[in-house]
């Protein structure tokens, strides 16, 4: 891990050291069970047909993501970010090519394995939050655990811990409508972590948030990488949301145009902080 500005930069919610998830990763790696690349996309193509006209949403994407990496997918609207995320998240299948999660071809999974993958292996965060509107914050976080067969009491306890972790300890019984956009996205972050996923997929998580709140969410995702040993993939079309990335993959018209490493990025949280004192 590159050096981290521990003291000053981390918002207080991140300092609550109570981690709901066990520290995994290290031991499992030693057992040699887990592959280095938790995500591997090989020649992924996806064509949609709009009124008979083919739309090449993805034109052959190759991408490998290491365990514990924070990768941002950067590209303008319509460049194929969501389509790529749907492939990786097991929500859609490539027309050509393969997506491997932990070296398992997602296209080969049956319904039950696919549901298990979505439930245990991957945490999803959406631009529009996608919380269940009639359920309270804590119930939203409990859903994935209940689907996994966790008991009500256990799920309740863990959901409360996770919500505390994302700084919503005082609002666990609020309905989504009673929460701000940033708070709703925090609930979504907690929900994504419910079953200790290996991967968190965040599709434009800051798209509906102002700059300040968006940055908080990005920092929170960065914190997850450290504390929960998750691999984070985050899509954005906003240059300002790249600061946490280990790698930035630039997507253009359904293909990767170039890739930048962290040290090649010229953007840091610090510079942003100076810029938006007045915001939020």
């Amino acid at each position: 891990m590159p050096e981290k500005p521990q003291e000053a930069e981390v918002p207080e919610v991140m300092l609550a050291t109570e981690t709901a998830a066990p520290k995994r990763g290290a031991e499992e790696d030693k057992a040699g069970l887990l592959a280095v690349h938790v995500i591997r996309a090989v020649g992924v193509k996806r064509i949609f047909y709009l009124g008979g006209e083919p739309v090449n949403a993805l034109r052959g994407v190759d991408l490998s993501v290491k365990r514990g990496e924070y990768v941002s997918i950067m590209g303008p609207s319509g460049s194929g970010k969501t389509t790529l995320f749907n492939m990786i998240g097991g929500l859609d299948k490539p027309d050509q090519g393969h997506v491997y999660i932990d070296e398992v071809d997602v296209a080969a999974l049956d319904t039950f394995e696919l549901a298990w993958l979505r439930c245990h292996k991957i945490g999803y965060i959406f631009q529009t939050f996608n919380l269940i509107p009639v359920a309270s914050a804590i119930e939203n976080v409990m859903f994935p655990m209940l689907f996994a067969g966790t008991t009500q009491a256990e799920a309740q306890q863990k959901a409360a811990e996770l919500l505390k972790r994302v700084g919503l300890g005082a609002r666990i019984f609020h309905k989504p409508v009673a929460l701000s956009g940033g708070q709703q996205q925090r609930v979504a972050v907690a929900r994504a972590l419910a079953n200790d996923p290996a991967i968190v997929l965040a599709d434009e998580p800051t798209g509906n948030l102002d700059l300040h709140t968006g940055e908080e969410i990005i920092r929170m995702l960065e914190g997850l990488k450290e504390d929960f040993h998750v691999t984070v993939m985050s899509a954005t079309h906003d240059h300002k949301m790249l600061a946490a990335s280990d790698r930035v993959v630039y997507l253009s018209d359904g293909a990767i145009s170039h890739i930048k490493r962290r040290e090649e990025l010229d953007i840091k949280f610090g510079t942003l902080q100076g810029d938006d004192k007045g915001v939020g």
Binding site: L91, T111, A115, C119, Y124, I132, F143, N195
Partner: peptide, 13 residues
């Protein structure tokens, strides 16, 4: 939308 979300969270058909 709710159904789609539930399926993303691992709900079986």
């Amino acid at each position: 939308k709710e159904i789609g979300t539930m399926k993303c969270l691992g709900a079986l058909d």
